[in-house]
Design a protein around this nucleic acid. Structure first.
Lengths: 212, 212
DNA sequence: TAGATTGTTAATCGATTAACAATC
DNA sequence: TAGATTGTTAATCGATTAACAATC
């Protein structure tokens, strides 16, 4: 067997989309799919799908395509989705509440195990069966429960210090909803959800439509 | 003057981050910045910033750097942010409500002018001073108000048909929060907010930490 | 068998970085 | 003036695509 190269991050970021599309195929009771067909569903070329998968092994059959369930299982294993991941959430504004209540996390192997806030009025209340806990207790909870994934849903002004404390307490990957670029050590993964930036990149094109 | 090349989309997607960082600099009353300093704040190389800006003109001074306010104005003009953009929102679940209530849109030139729902219990209620309107009236509102930006915050199962109707009614750019890849014509801009996929791409790395 | 589709290599395309003359 | 930093070109790096032998 060949020694496989380390897959680039772009490839890793596409795998969850492949997995999701395969789940939808299973729902539709489609059990076999070609790279061509899968690609059409997610707007990716067939060659790219085959190349991406080749970083991890050989999952298809020439002349046939891929067994949907088998390929899905492989990709989920690759992504670590054969286990469920505890996640903690910091910030319970409108957005934090929407995140805590979103079923899509729970159903996709992401278990919110702690919700933290500084606002004393909110501490003690429950959202989706999870009690809102004092932010000051966060480090202890992270250490005790060994969570490694954190979601930041606080205002931009507080996001950096929350990130510092998360990382200091043992968090290894952060999803940041605050509109700010965090400064973090190289060995911590950080990704952003930034709808305003995304909309602003589309206004660029809209401003140019019907124009000279 | 040289004829300038069309900037690639990666560049367009970085401009809003430059703009935001410049706004923070202004808040801090920093009025001049070098590509080096700006780059450090957003984790981008100085060369990349200068190259990106060069698609649009010359905005700096050798030996000095950039005037923060002037550069910000230029970038906002480039992105079309010298005007405010009407946006419509479809779907008023937890997420849709959080979106409607988020101040970050209003303060950044994105005015929600319509909120649509099929749930008859919600129609007529108000969120953040905007009345929730029957989804059936959406096409008329889009045509009458000439909105070109739409946000989809409905469940995955409904997202494609909502997109079809939005586009059919005149929407030219869509921000989709539903976990599904939309099939749309080439001349419509579509971007996704997909926290679950983003988290799933980080579990890949977490699953490999402290491993052989 | 004939037709289809994979896995992989090589070619292409595009984006990032390095380097430096120009100049504030 | 000397030092700093831009704008731009060329070199490098990396990702996507095309093509096809292998094979189901």
């Amino acid at each position: 067997m060949e020694r496989l190269e380390d897959p680039p991050d772009v490839v890793i970021r596409r795998l969850p989309l492949y997995a999701r599309s395969l789940r939808y195929l299973l729902d539709e009771e489609i059990h076999s799919v070609s790279s061509q067909e899968l690609g059409e569903r997610i707007n990716v070329t067939a060659a790219q799908i085959r190349k991406d998968l080749s970083y991890f092994g050989e999952f298809g059959k020439q002349g046939i395509g891929y067994d949907v369930e088998k390929l899905l299982n492989h990709i989920e294993r690759i992504l670590g989705l054969d286990q469920s991941w505890p996640v903690i959430l910091v910030g319970v504004g409108h957005l934090g509440q929407a995140i805590a209540r979103y079923d899509g996390f729970h159903s996709q192997g992401l278990r919110i195990v702690g919700i933290f806030e500084t606002d004393q009025h909110k501490i003690g209340q429950k959202i989706a069966h999870i009690e809102i806990t004092d932010y000051a207790l966060m480090p202890k909870v992270i250490r005790d429960t060994d969570v490694r994934l954190g979601i930041i849903a606080v205002p931009a002004a507080e996001a950096q210090s929350v990130a510092d404390m998360l990382i200091d307490s043992g968090i290894r990957a952060i999803l940041c909803y605050a509109p700010i670029i965090l400064q973090t050590p190289d060995d911590v993964w950080v990704r952003y959800i930034d709808p305003v930036a995304v909309l602003h990149s589309m206004t660029y094109y809209l401003a140019r439509e019907n124009m000279p």
